[in-house]
């Protein structure tokens, strides 16, 4: 079809077939759209039922008192007041903040350093990757039971080893001063494999010419890392930082299985407190209120973080 014919004004006899063609096209388009929506519908139903509806339900539960059998009562902000009045909530927030800080200080640089070292290894790279990733495939409960033995103040592996060089014994999980850090050590070991592999993949994507150019300019190892590798990894580092921030704020398995929140609430985290509200005390409304507060905090933190690092990750 030429441009000439397209621009020619339609005569009355031509208008009818053109209008019919347009209507047919519209019908076809509508059917395509319906088919698209029908294909989308299963995913929407599944997400709606198992993700969005529970979120809405959790939010409304924060304003209700219920025993899950009888009709729920609306109680306004009572659940939020109860949570904010609970001294344990402040302890849980403080502990979670310390845990996040320790995880960032210990757990965040560890995989980056390890990946940097591993990227230089030529022989047995596959074996090292396998060994680093191995803890990720060990079920968390099994890993924690294993580490519980490592940490045993009497006959544990760590105190036995340290004892050979005249150190310890240390109480590890039994002391309010070392319990939280002990949890961070285990979770760093358990979760590091995935981050190492992501860093290794990102490092493999850095053009070799950049390193060569830096080397020709007389850069040493540290300057090549600082001025070439790290800037190239910025987007990945930024993403992993956010993921780690969100996952460490939601820490639950480690304090639940290692210490139950003790000693003296030293490892009581926000999620463990939510669990206690809901499943030990049966205060579902308070659990939902604290969950809502945590979700809002996470959303604000994520937004601030993304805004702050937007330009950083683009460069």
């Amino acid at each position: 079809m030429s441009l000439l014919t397209q621009n020619r004004p339609p005569t009355a006899s031509r208008r009818r077939p053109l209008a019919g063609l347009a209507a047919r096209r519209r019908g076809l388009e509508t059917r395509r759209q319906i088919a698209g929506w029908l294909f989308l519908l299963p995913a929407l139903v599944i997400f709606g039922l198992f993700a969005w509806w529970p979120i809405v339900r959790g939010f409304t539960l924060a304003f209700q008192r219920t025993n899950l059998v009888d009709p729920a009562q609306w109680v306004g902000f009572d659940n939020f007041r109860a949570v904010l009045d609970d001294p344990l909530a402040a302890t849980a927030v403080k502990n979670t903040a310390i845990y996040v800080g320790l995880a960032l200080a210990i757990g965040f640089p560890a995989p980056l350093i390890l990946a940097s070292v591993m990227s230089t290894v030529r022989r047995g790279a596959g074996l090292y990757r396998f060994l680093v990733y191995l803890p990720v495939v060990i079920p968390p409960t099994v890993a924690i039971l294993l580490w519980k033995w490592f940490y045993d103040p009497g006959s544990g592996l760590f105190n036995s080893l340290l004892g050979k060089v005249g150190l310890g014994p240390y109480p590890w999980l039994d002391s309010p001063h070392t319990a939280l850090a002990s949890l961070v050590l285990e979770s760093t070991w358990a979760g590091m494999g995935g981050a190492v592999l992501i860093y290794l993949a990102a490092m493999a994507g850095i053009p070799g010419e950049l390193y060569e150019a830096a080397e020709m300019d007389g850069s040493g190892v540290w300057r090549r890392i600082w001025h070439v590798m790290l800037p190239q990894l910025r987007p990945v580092i930024g993403l992993l930082l956010l993921v780690q921030l969100i996952s460490t704020i939601q820490v639950f398995t480690e304090p639940y299985l290692f210490t139950g929140g003790g000693p003296q609430n030293a490892t009581m985290t926000v999620l463990l407190l939510i669990f206690r509200y809901a499943f030990q005390n049966g205060e579902y409304g308070q659990a939902a209120a604290l969950t809502t507060l945590m979700v809002l905090t996470l959303a604000v933190l994520s937004a601030v973080y993304l805004r702050a690092t937007r330009s950083w990750s683009r460069t």
């Binding site: 059917r31 319906i34 698209g36 029908l38 294909f39 519908l41 299963p42 139903v45 599944i46 039922l49």
Partner: peptide, 24 residues
């Protein structure tokens, strides 16, 4: 073209019905 569209439409319906059955 129209036949294909009907086929796609029916397939979509089947997928939805299967999902609904799975969720029931």
């Amino acid at each position: 073209m129209v036949r294909i569209s009907w086929f796609v439409l029916i397939a979509g319906c089947v997928a939805t019905a299967l999902t609904a059955a799975g969720c029931s």
